[in-house]
Design a protein around this nucleic acid. Structure first.
Lengths: 353, 353
DNA sequence: CGTGAGTCTTGAAAGCTTTCAAATTTCGAG
DNA sequence: CTCGAAATTTGAAAGCTTTCAAGACTCACG
């Protein structure tokens, strides 16, 4: 591991000059410049990122804090982030929180000691997070929230149009003739779950469809959760003819539950998910879904972060809030309600919320 | 961001003492010790990972170099690695190479300047890699190869029993009565693709089943590859009754191709994949697969790496080569060949390889 | 009370880079 | 050829920790 001193000696110049050549931080006359570059080449010198970070008070790392790479929505986000980070000379430190506040905190505290250029975070906790995040910003790191945004967050963020996406999906179901539409939500302390639920309610309200309270079930964003709550919904006396699951994993669980009860999708129950994972088109039946591009979210977040880092004044400009579009992808898991199920038509009245 | 100097002043001791308390690197009398700890608490002091790494010539980071998180097999590996890394106070820097040598090299060169404690790598290139890897080891980092191992690698590694896994799967197909068994392989410059192919050949040879050269198709480890080569196989005059795809993505592509040609799985063609991804049981039909646990691979790799790091002499002990078991998971995509297809029985003769 | 062996503490050096003020060189003009 | 301004180059300091040799204490023992 050669260092600058060796380069300086070999090139017959001072430390400062070597630094200037490497960083283009000052004009250096051509002959010297050449000698330095030759030495760098000869010794295969690479500056120590540690020493550099120590001196500059900032490294080229970006902390990426997510709940769990194993959840199939997140890898695309990570990839989008890593690609644009890499393209700009930055590296990603990946941290899984499992939605645990304690783990999140530990990751953040540790990350901070590396003086990363910034932080992309899909938060696990909301209220208690702010102090640690503030401490990050004070130390000069740019912070971008992704997918889930704490209410009082004033900085940069990237989300998708959760409300609208679900609204259009439910609207579509209604147009097909569905009147008994249920919704399996994620944990309602998460803003994105709330927004998706709001979109559901908005669509029903618009046409004056009512729904029993039992049609909305708060669950967890995984397959087991979807499976469990779908079972409950499907056993209701007044069984829904369509189920909107707030993500694809829950939708998969719903399909399993339907199969288990010997019902058929879409004949007996239509299902729509959210995310539009790659695999959903291979399922039985292929799953309709509200598409959001994780890749674009990750890429956008890092881009915003780098804009901040390269911008003149971190924290000076007001926070930007990017909202990416969603897109409804209809597949075979959705169909008009069958004659048998359509029977007990309900009168359209005001929704009770 | 308080530093040690401030702690020292506040506690009325010297820098050295603070360091000793924090690292337990020397006995410190209780009263001083207390004062230091109080100061640490009061100022919420955390040592700078950069300065520490610079001084110690080693950080608590582990470089994780993989082809692509977006490939559904890898997230489990990453997660397994991150979990055991985190549990031991280490952090993961994630790098995607897209199987490009250039990207791999750039990642490695950059990583090295951070003096990571170690490196877990699923290599993209093989021959040309050794120099950079050697340079890593010389700088004191432990290196563990995962999943794909260069021929001449003498250090630590983790793989699965590729050959055996495929052998048992093909054996199973043969027991069901299949005689026309095809194989879609990954790129054959990859050791794991070679091993899986060898397992296939071994099983056929054992019972003296021959197969036309056209039954082995080298493809890419993704859905598009599987789809494309399955189409070719399915259009052969002597259509195979079973296809072994060397990973689940290719198996999914195969299912798509079968559907596209209006054939039925498993009635017309049985399919077995490799990996046993979570989603495969939801597919149409549920996909049989040779299971390998990515999580365990990742966790094992980091454990081996940390053993090295904590061991006395890095590089002293000979390389350990862990081979994890695979397990055949039969699902509805596999059935005995139908009567119609079984017709043209072939005489069992020596295989030609 | 003096001494020597331990036991604690300390301060400085080292690890590698960036940056800044100061020193040196270059160059054009007179 | 000389001078002053402008352009380069330099060396030291700073950033924060760990580690090591050396100094300061403690304490039992004679």
């Amino acid at each position: 591991m050669p260092n600058m001193k060796q380069i300086a000696r070999m090139a017959g110049v001072s430390l400062g000059t070597v630094s200037h050549v490497i960083n283009n931080s000052a004009r250096v006359r051509e002959p010297l410049r050449q000698r330095v570059l030759e030495a760098v080449d000869a010794l295969r010198y690479q500056p120590s990122a540690l020493a550099r970070g120590l001196r500059r008070d900032k490294t080229n790392m970006i902390g990426m804090v997510i709940p769990d790479v194993t959840n199939p929505f997140f890898p695309a986000v990570v990839r989008g982030a890593e690609d644009t980070a890499f393209a700009n000379g930055y590296r990603l430190v990946l941290c899984n929180t499992d939605n645990s506040h304690a783990k999140e905190l530990e990751h953040l505290e540790q990350l901070r000691t590396y003086l990363p250029a910034g932080l992309i975070i899909i938060p696990a906790s909301f209220d208690k997070l702010s102090e640690e995040i503030e401490s990050f910003r004070r130390s000069g790191a740019a912070v971008v929230f992704l997918d889930r945004i704490p209410r009082n967050w004033k900085g940069d963020s990237v989300t998708v149009s959760n409300n609208d996406g679900v609204f259009r999906a439910v609207e579509y179901l209604i147009q097909l003739g569905h009147e008994r539409i249920a919704c399996i939500t994620g944990p309602l302390h998460l803003p994105n779950a709330q927004e998706r639920l709001a979109g559901y309610k908005r669509a029903l309200k618009l046409v004056g469809l009512s729904y029993p309270e039992s049609y909305v079930r708060e669950s967890t964003f995984d397959r087991a959760g979807g499976y469990h709550d779908a079972l409950v919904l499907l056993r209701l006396r007044n069984r829904p003819t369509a189920i909107l699951a707030q993500n694809d994993l829950m939708a998969m669980g719903t399909l399993l539950a339907i199969r288990e009860l010997q019902l058929r999708c879409p004949h007996d129950v239509s299902v729509i998910g959210f995310d539009d994972l790659d695999v959903t088109e291979l399922m039985d039946p292929p799953l309709a879904s509200i598409r959001q591009s994780g890749y674009r979210m990750g890429a956008t977040a890092v881009q915003m972060l780098l804009d901040r880092v390269n911008g003149d004044e971190i924290g000076a400009a007001p926070g930007r809030h990017r909202v990416l579009e969603t897109e409804l992808r209809i597949r075979e898991s959705v169909a008009p309600p069958s004659a048998a199920n359509r029977g007990k038509q309900q009168s359209r009245k005001r929704i009770r919320v």
